[in-house]
């Protein structure tokens, strides 16, 4: 049933926008109602949602489980940090352009190697390549700042700097949140078009049956390569949006557990639906924050939650919600 969500000639864009509108309005007013701290968490959630959305183009639509998306997130983040450190830039728009170019370059390169493999071999290759970047971040500490990382000050948004009267939290919770929200919505719209495009159909065909896809004339590795790049660029963009929020980038975001978190988000929300990774990313951020505050063994706790979820809700939050809705509708 959930698979049907990904299929068909696709719903009319007008209807999709109409059904998404209430959520957009809600996201727009939330900063005025929520405590600043909660809005901050939501901002992180939206940023990670872009990363998870990119990740899921590979997992949900192409059938490739990447265990190295931390690499692309890190490339986006470090691209911004380098632009600050070496070019003295402060414009968020330039950061976005820079991070996009940098992550497109790295994903194009990594993709050439990885997309020739599938299943566990693909996962291990992506993992290995991301670990290479991670170790480079240590080795070239005079460039990357090593474990200290690189600081990134608050950027200018559309040429506007933080007013002297404004404190950093207010800036992040209002101006920056709105900025992230707009980029997030643009990314969601773009990804929705991509997965509902002929190309998106071809990816799903490759996922379902590689041999047959080849025998209708789809050049598999080319499609996978493009999907890999699109996926990585979304994640790199998320990295760029994340640095100003965090104020600092360290090699932690290149390390494999961070890739694991992105996988977690998609599985938690449901990788078989379009919106699953978005919901997963936002929920994960709250979960993680509370788990960290609750116990030093937060990773263990999250692990237990993940296992429970996979067993109890194999279709994730959105998949299960969809099934419940369908059942309610049938009962009514």
């Amino acid at each position: 049933m959930t698979a049907a969500v990904l299929s068909g000639e696709g719903r009319s864009p007008v209807k999709v926008v109409a059904s998404a509108a209430p959520v957009v309005v809600l996201l727009w007013v939330l900063p005025y109602v929520l405590a600043p701290y909660k809005t901050l968490l939501l901002t992180y959630g939206l940023v990670m949602a872009i990363a998870a959305l990119g990740f899921n183009l590979l997992l949900g639509y192409t059938g490739l489980l990447s265990f190295g998306h931390s690499a692309f997130f890190g490339v986006g983040a470090y691209a911004v940090a380098f632009m600050v450190k070496y070019l003295d830039l402060t414009s968020m728009e330039l950061f976005i352009v820079g991070a996009t170019v940098a992550s497109a370059f790295v994903t194009a390169l990594f993709g050439l190697v990885c997309v020739r493999y599938t299943r566990i071999f693909f996962s291990i290759l992506t993992l290995a390549l991301s670990q290479v970047l991670w170790s480079l971040a240590f080795k070239f500490f005079w460039v990357t700042g090593g474990t200290d990382g690189l600081r990134v000050p608050t950027p200018r948004l559309l040429g506007r700097a933080v007013a002297a009267s404004e404190d950093k939290t207010t800036f992040l919770v209002h101006a920056y949140y709105s900025y992230v929200l707009v980029v997030f919505l643009a990314c969601v719209a773009l990804m929705w078009v991509i997965v509902n495009s002929p190309f998106g159909k071809a990816l799903q065909a490759i996922r379902d049956n590689e041999t047959r896809a080849e025998f209708v004339g789809v050049q598999i590795w080319r499609y996978r390569w493009i999907a890999f790049m699109v996926s990585g660029v979304f994640t790199g963009l998320a990295g760029a949006l994340w640095v100003p929020l965090n104020g600092l980038t360290t090699p932690d975001i290149l390390y494999w557990p961070f890739s694991g978190e992105i996988v977690f988000m998609a599985v938690l929300g449901g990788f078989r639906t379009f919106s699953g990774p978005i919901v997963g990313a936002i929920v994960f951020n709250y979960l993680k924050t509370y788990a960290v505050g609750f116990t030093v063994y937060w990773q263990l706790l999250l692990g237990v939650i993940l296992v429970t979820l996979v067993l109890a809700l194999p279709t994730g939050i959105t998949g299960t919600a969809g099934q419940l809705l369908a059942r309610l509708r049938r009962a009514a």
């Binding site: 696709g10 495009s197 159909k201 896809a213 209708v216 004339g217």
Partner: peptide, 20 residues
């Protein structure tokens, strides 16, 4: 079936337009 036709027509690579 549509996928065959998209591929045959060289349209399967279209990334930024809706299949519908």
């Amino acid at each position: 079936v549509a996928l065959s036709i998209f591929a045959r027509e060289g349209k399967a690579r279209k990334l930024f337009s809706l299949a519908r």
